[in-house]
Simulated scan of single mutants.
Amino acid sequence: MSLKGTLGVAVIGTGRMGADHVRRINEVISGARVAAVADIDADRAEAVAAGIEDCTPCTDPAAAMADPAVDAVLIASPGPAHEAALLTAFERDLPVLCEKPLTPDAASALRVLRAEEALGHRRVQVGFMRRYDSGYLKLKSLLDAGTYGRTLMLHNKHRSPATPPGFTNAMLVNDSVVHEIDTTRWLLDEEITAVRVLRPAPSGNAPEGLSDPQLFLFETAAGQVVDTELFQNCSFGYQVGCEAVGERGTARIGDDHGVFVNSAGQWGGSITPGFVERFEEAYDRQVQRWVDATRRGEVEGPSCWDGYAAAAVCEAGVRAQESGERVTVELVERPDLYRSRG
Results as ranks from 00 to 15, higher is better:
residue 1 M to L: 08
residue 3 L to D: 05
residue 6 T to G: 07
residue 7 L to E: 09
residue 10 A to I: 11
residue 17 M to R: 10
residue 19 A to H: 09
residue 22 V to D: 08
residue 22 V to H: 02
residue 28 V to Y: 01
residue 30 S to R: 15
residue 32 A to C: 12
residue 33 R to M: 11
residue 37 V to A: 09
residue 46 E to Q: 08
residue 48 V to K: 03
residue 49 A to P: 06
residue 58 C to I: 01
residue 61 P to C: 05
residue 62 A to Q: 10
residue 64 A to P: 13
residue 71 D to S: 14
residue 78 P to Y: 04
residue 79 G to R: 01
residue 83 E to Q: 13
residue 89 A to I: 10
residue 89 A to N: 04
residue 92 R to P: 03
residue 96 V to G: 01
residue 102 L to Q: 08
residue 102 L to N: 08
residue 106 A to S: 09
residue 106 A to R: 03
residue 107 A to W: 00
residue 108 S to I: 03
residue 112 V to L: 11
residue 112 V to Q: 08
residue 113 L to A: 03
residue 114 R to W: 05
residue 115 A to N: 04
residue 116 E to R: 02
residue 117 E to W: 01
residue 119 L to K: 09
residue 124 V to M: 02
residue 125 Q to F: 05
residue 129 M to R: 01
residue 131 R to M: 10
residue 132 Y to W: 07
residue 135 G to C: 10
residue 140 K to Q: 08
residue 158 H to F: 15
residue 159 R to Q: 12
residue 164 P to N: 01
residue 166 G to L: 13
residue 168 T to C: 07
residue 175 D to H: 10
residue 180 E to R: 04
residue 184 T to Q: 05
residue 184 T to L: 07
residue 189 D to P: 02
residue 191 E to P: 00
residue 195 V to A: 10
residue 198 L to G: 11
residue 207 P to I: 11
residue 215 L to R: 08
residue 220 T to L: 14
residue 225 V to A: 12
residue 229 E to K: 06
residue 232 Q to G: 03
residue 235 S to P: 01
residue 236 F to C: 11
residue 237 G to R: 00
residue 238 Y to T: 15
residue 244 A to E: 04
residue 245 V to Y: 02
residue 247 E to W: 00
residue 247 E to N: 03
residue 250 T to E: 09
residue 250 T to Y: 00
residue 258 G to I: 02
residue 261 V to C: 08
residue 268 G to N: 08
residue 270 S to F: 02
residue 271 I to K: 09
residue 271 I to C: 14
residue 275 F to I: 15
residue 278 R to D: 14
residue 286 Q to Y: 06
residue 300 E to P: 02
residue 300 E to G: 10
residue 304 C to L: 10
residue 305 W to A: 14
residue 307 G to W: 01
residue 307 G to E: 05
residue 311 A to I: 04
residue 315 E to H: 01
residue 316 A to G: 03
residue 317 G to M: 07
residue 318 V to T: 11
residue 326 R to Y: 02
residue 334 R to I: 15
residue 339 R to T: 14
residue 342 G to R: 03
